[in-house]
Design a protein around this nucleic acid. Structure first.
Lengths: 195, 195
DNA sequence: CATTAAAACGAACGTTCGTGCTATTTTTCA
DNA sequence: TGAAAAATAGCACGAACGTTCGTTTTAATG
């Protein structure tokens, strides 16, 4: 009972720290210090650093879903919901939901060439994300809101690229216009496909 | 004399290693092992890990420029050269010029929220890259090949996003269609702006 | 060929990493 | 309230980290 609460608070911190320092730069000692716990006490919750990393990814996924999907599901399916997902993504960058920028963009580039269970988990999450985007596109087509000619996988690829590009320009280049550029591009692309 | 040659071979290895493990994951001991050198002998070339990281970034930049710009400069300025840069970028992903995927995409996401001279160097390089892209766009406009209505910064943002998106899909998701999707999107966007 | 400077080495420093024990404290529940 | 269980702390470990040092090997030069 108590353990579960502690575990959750450890993971919330771990997510923030990992978004700043990377999943590999995430360190048990530093995490314990920040939480005023002993290394071993914290460690006991996970049994290995790898398990901590996996649990951190899962916790970040919950935050991601809560920020991106939950609000969009309130919109009617089809074009409005698709647009809501896009807007939610850009708002999530602007608001700095993760202090070091999108957790999954960072983890994706950190682990894209590092075989192992951590990479597998990141990849699984990103596969699900892209498939969810494709599904949103397909629904907009099914509702007759969007041209049936566009390949959902292609459009999902493009939208995701604009999101990651906004994250890059915003956090590395401090381009305060980044999310606006991305939003204009998204809307132009979607409006052109609207039927 | 000899030292300069050694230094260069160290840096070439360092670039490859850093593209796989990250600039922070790049380790002097591991690098020395791979090159069958002593840690201290290698270390003496740089004086600190930070200096090694900076030199590694510069070496990666040379490879980047050689792969992306050099071939494009052979094309006539304007639309052909702009398109050549885009094609060069996607080819550079497909051919795995860096074994762990684009060095600068990885470094950008690794250091986007980590103040310090390393971040500053990565940012400087990426600023130059984006400005070069904007310049290519502006030249295409000046030549009368591309609509003057589009903001070069906006278009450069979009193109770069598609490149990074291709790198992401190719290396993390093993989407072999990634570079084709990106190429289709690039061409569709540019053709629509052609005058 | 001898001299000198440059380059590489091996050993050690203090620190931090992840992990394994054992003991102690805190929480839970009959 | 007291026994059992869960959670946390303390301490130690071997390995790896970046870095420093004095020494030895190699290369360049008169």
């Amino acid at each position: 009972m108590k353990g579960e609460r502690t575990r959750q608070s450890i993971l919330e911190r771990a997510v923030d720290l990992a978004s700043l320092e990377g999943l590999e730069g995430l360190t048990i000692g530093r995490l314990a210090d920040e939480l005023k716990m002993s290394k071993s006490g914290l460690f006991a919750h996970f049994g290995s650093k790898e398990e901590l990393q996996l649990a951190t990814i899962d916790t970040a996924a919950e935050r991601y879903i809560a920020e991106i999907f939950r609000p969009a599901l309130a919109e009617p399916r089809g074009y409005p919901r698709l647009l809501a997902v896009c807007r939610a993504w850009l708002s999530y960058v602007r608001r700095g939901v993760f202090p070091g920028g999108c957790f999954f963009a960072a983890a994706s580039f950190e682990f894209d060439s590092r075989p192992g269970v951590v990479r597998d988990r990141v990849r699984k999450m990103m596969d699900e994300w892209i498939h969810a985007l494709e599904k949103a596109v397909r629904m907009a087509q099914d509702e007759g809101h969007l041209s049936p000619d566009v390949d959902p996988a292609d459009l999902a690829f493009e939208l995701n690229a604009l999101f990651f590009g906004a994250n890059f320009a915003f956090y590395l280049r401090n381009d305060t216009e980044a999310t606006n550029r991305a939003e204009r591009a998204v809307i132009a692309r979607l409006e052109a496909l609207r039927v």
